[in-house]
Design a protein around this nucleic acid. Structure first.
Lengths: 235, 235
DNA sequence: TACTGTGAATGAGTTCACAGCC
DNA sequence: GGCTGTGAACTCATTCACAGTA
């Protein structure tokens, strides 16, 4: 895993203040990277509270849920201002909206999946994507036997047709589930096609061309983190 | 994703100094958490260099590969001492050994997989596990139609048989690929069975009982990180 | 000469503790 | 009264810059 675009990126990720719109928006001009990496977790838990009808949540409860301190929760959420009421807690649905806006996941994102091996197949059928506004437009694979069919209404094309197919699809994101040896070449091609972000499952450190962001997920690395935590859990 | 046991865990993860053995071992008594989270990445890249016959590597090259500064690489690797030579670089295979030892992935880890849906199927066939000393001993699923068969020589049992099957298997790790609603209950049961670590793919914050560590991988959260990086990539 | 190893400086992130407000 | 919001203190992480060495 490389995660050049986030966890390991030393650069501060900046966010411009938008002119106020109907939804209350981010207050400060910048979200610190460490906070940014927690936003998705906050959103997930808050959406779960929302589903179970909880209207208001305290920093301590949310903290317990996520294994974070109450003061850290308050620091983070104070960046979005306006949603906490002293003596009461935070307004759940207001925060959900603000977090989605801060993350950029209000609105739709068109994605393609490249690689229909074991992992690709699992990702293709993964239901969590559509739920957060991600729309899978097409799948690409090298194997001619898999190509020119549809699965769940999503067309499968040859990777050689990337340059022909992608431009008309309005794709911003790509999910790479290909062997490590193919990944760098594909990122380069995707960048030329105007794709803005790549979720990379190939176990290799990519050098993304300028203009394209990558986030890496390496299952072997995650398992190693787990083992390290286990071995060192004697506090 | 919760990552209570690592990325978000505010506690420092400590590691005791072992008495010197044949392999040069970790020098300092403690690996800082931020460094610990990079160890798997270092290992992956170094193993790749090793495979391509590179004997020696400089902090700048490794840094370029991973998007980290050379001085950060040096700080991190100096914790393991002895492998850098001034004017030359680091000894690749020595470092690989030291990293595997520090991570705890020298030696074998027995694991089970719980949940044989789309993702579980992909994980079952994922080849990266065995390569790092992880051995999948069995798979568990609720679906009676999937049960009591073998796939690639790995037996599939009913989840109801966890308590019956696991104790004899010498299992330390479990991979959870089940719906969010099942995850907490399973972690509790696994902890009672003496399982030490859980790699959790369910999109939910777990409260692991004492004695068990969890590392969470939430694909939706990773996609949200990507979108955030894309939206904020105008520096 | 060309690199590593590391004090010192800087910067980022977290926690403390309490004032401020509902 | 019970919570949030936040200055101040603190801790952790990264970078700088250069001495030390193969």
């Amino acid at each position: 895993m490389k995660e050049k675009s986030e966890r390991n990126d030393p650069d501060s990720v900046k966010m411009e203040v938008k002119a106020p719109v109907d939804l209350p928006s981010v207050r400060s001009g910048t979200i610190p990277p460490a906070t940014a990496n927690r936003l998705g977790l906050y959103l997930r838990e808050l959406q779960q509270f929302q589903r179970s009808g909880v209207k208001t949540i305290k920093s301590t409860s949310l903290g317990n849920r996520l294994g974070l301190s109450d003061s850290q929760i308050r620091r983070d959420l104070a960046l979005f201002g306006e949603f906490g009421k002293r003596g009461v807690g935070y307004d759940v649905s207001g925060l959900v909206g603000a977090l989605r806006q801060a993350l950029g996941t209000d609105g739709k994102w068109n994605a393609i999946l490249i690689g229909l091996g074991n992992l690709g197949n699992a990702l293709l059928r993964y239901r969590g994507f559509n739920q957060q506004g991600f729309v899978l437009q097409a799948v690409f694979d090298v194997d001619q036997n898999k190509v020119n069919r549809e699965i769940d209404g999503i067309p499968i094309y040859a990777i050689s047709e990337l340059e022909k197919r992608v431009p008309s699809m309005g794709v911003q994101l790509a999910i790479l589930a290909v062997p490590a040896s193919e990944a760098q070449n594909l990122v380069n091609r995707l960048a030329l096609l105007g794709v803005l972000g790549v979720l990379n499952f190939a176990p290799i450190g990519l050098s993304p061309p300028t203009g394209i962001q990558t986030v890496d997920v390496d299952l072997a690395v995650e398992l190693q983190r787990l083992v390290f935590a286990v071995v060192n859990s004697n506090r």
